[in-house]
Amino acid sequence: MDITPELLLELLVAALIVIGGLFGVVGSYGLAKLPDLMTRLHGPTKATTLGVGGALLASMVYFWARDGFTFHELLVTLFLFLTAPITATMVAKAYLHRAYLDDENGQQALPPTGRRYGWASFDAAPESEGSNPDSVEAPRRADS
């Protein structure tokens, strides 16, 4: 069997698919196996990103070799990289809200903020000027 560029490309696509599949299944196994929600968050947010990333890269290389340069798969990867942390944080907040808000001692289970104010899921933002993150710096107008 000769080693041709086609064979190398095929090898690359196959390797990417296999790596992606392995990481995908490990991430979901973590979701099923780990003991509580905060640890379960670690599995899907990381392993699955590389799992989908592998499948997307494989698709990109495959169509690149077949039909010429293509780059729109990068858009899905980019979108997933931007949204995965946001969904993870939102799920964590929903969990903390449910698990700790009704519980009298619950909030003591979280470490202190080291500030005068508590965590944003439980405490209202301070009203006074200068301590709100949006008014820390002088407002920068777009047309200034």
Binding site: M38, L41, H42, T45, K46, T49, F81, A84, P85, A88, T89, A92, K93, L96, T113, G114, R115, R116, Y117, G118, W119, A120, S121, D123, A124, A125, P126, S131, N132, P133, V136
Partner: peptide, 17 residues
């Protein structure tokens, strides 16, 4: 959230932790 073994969960109400 995307890097090894850590997930960010919340921000303090004044945005400093």
């Amino acid at each position: 959230t995307m890097t090894p073994g850590t997930v960010s969960a919340d921000l303090s109400a004044d945005g400093r932790a």
